[in-house]
Structures are given as C-alpha cells and as structure tokens.
C-alpha cells in the first residue's frame, strides 16, 4: 500500500468513505426511526502495532463485528462498539429498556442477532453506495460477531494488513443521533492494492 498519498488521493478516499457512511447512516436512521448524522470520516494510516489501541486499549472489551468484502476490491468492514453503544442499539431496535452497563453482562442470542443484523444492513448500504459510485462490484459475507478484547477482535484485520506491510489504512466513521454517539466506529479496511483500485476507478492515479 502506498504510504505517500497526496492531498487529492486523500480527499477522494475521504469522499468514498463519506458516501459509504452517509448511506449507512440513512439505513440506521430507517432501522431506528430517528435522525442519524455521520461524522466527517477520517482516513488514517495506522501502524499495525498501534491498531489495537484505536478505541482505547487492546484489552478493553468491545462488541466487534466484521464483514468480509470480496470482488473488484477487497478488505473488511468492521464495527467496534463499546458496551453502552451496543446495549443502546439493542434497546432501540427491540424497543425495550436499556440495561445498566457498568458491569460486563451477557448479550442474549437475540441481542447478538440484532447487532449482527445491524452490521449487515449498515455494511450493505455502505458497500452498495461505494459500488455504485465507483462502478466496482463487490460481495459481502455474512456478518461475524465477537465480544472480546479489542486487540483480539481486530487481530484478523491486522494480520491481513500485516501481509503487505506494517501499516493499515482505515476509513473511520462515527454515527450520531443528536449529540449521542450511537455507533462508535465503522471502519473500512481495504486490503492489498484495493485503495489503488478504488482511486483508479475514479480516474485518479
């Protein structure tokens, strides 16, 4: 992966993330029946050894979800939620009161299913938008869920990135309802030369 991106390439990738996350925000808005806005996406080049600390420390327990992307470009779409965010989404989707989340608790099979399906819908919207914008075709896998330490949950993405270098490029977005950060991190992590393919599809590079 090219570590020397110029300003234009950076802006184009940010716009790709913007379009993807914008559609994901609309999908979440429809799912939860409330207005959702997205943050300005960040395009970050992160040393893989520092990736586990992206949402705190490597040992922090998170609800992590992943979708594999394969096709004209490839990579992973990941969601990382802290317990409060995950509990909030479950309560909003199922229309039930939120449990206290000071302590770790178990999510039921139904709760996990809700979280997986949320990622599935958001991922589908995100990728469809990018696919239409770039005219590239991709398929997404079923959503996979893991509730564990952040470092461990991110490990597979780090391993993929590690095959081609010591850095990973992250497209990071956050989704908000009013002032509440509802969806902590939605990452697109392109694999290998997928960034180049995305840029080429738009006539850049």
């Amino acid at each position: 992966m090219d570590q020397n991106m110029d300003e234009l390439q950076h802006d184009v990738l940010r716009e790709i993330a913007n379009i993807g996350a914008g559609h994901a925000a609309s999908a979440l808005s429809a799912l939860l029946n409330r207005p959702i806005v997205q943050s300005v996406p960040e395009i970050e080049l992160v040393p893989i050894s520092k990736l586990p600390e992206i949402i705190g420390d490597a040992e922090k327990v998170v609800v992590g979800g992943m979708v594999d992307i394969n096709g004209d470009f490839s990579g992973h779409l990941m969601m990382l939620l802290d317990f409060v965010q995950a509990e909030r989404i479950v309560s909003l989707v199922l229309d039930k009161p939120m449990r206290k989340t000071e302590k770790l608790h178990r999510f039921s099979t139904m709760d996990k299913s809700v979280l997986s399906e949320t990622l599935n819908i958001l991922g589908g919207s995100y990728l469809t938008a990018i696919s239409e914008f770039t005219n590239l075709k991709v398929l997404q896998s079923i959503p996979y869920l893991s509730i564990d330490m952040a470092g461990a949950v991110l490990n597979i993405v780090i391993a993929e990135a590690g095959k081609t270098g010591d850095y990973a490029l992250l497209f990071n977005s956050e989704l908000y309802n009013d002032d509440e950060k509802l969806f902590g991190n939605l990452f697109l992590v392109p694999r290998d030369d997928s960034c180049k393919i995305l840029l080429q599809s738009l006539g850049i590079v």
């Binding site: 330490m149 461990a152 490990n155 391993a159």
Partner: peptide
Amino acid sequence: KVARPPDQLYSLGLGSC
C-alpha cells in the same frame, strides 16, 4: 523483548496472534 528478573513482559489482547 528480552528481560531479566524482576521484570515482567506482557502482550494484551491476543486473537489469532
């Protein structure tokens, strides 16, 4: 990292690592 007592070494959050 290589160390001698009383030092300890640790790695956080191993998944496939």
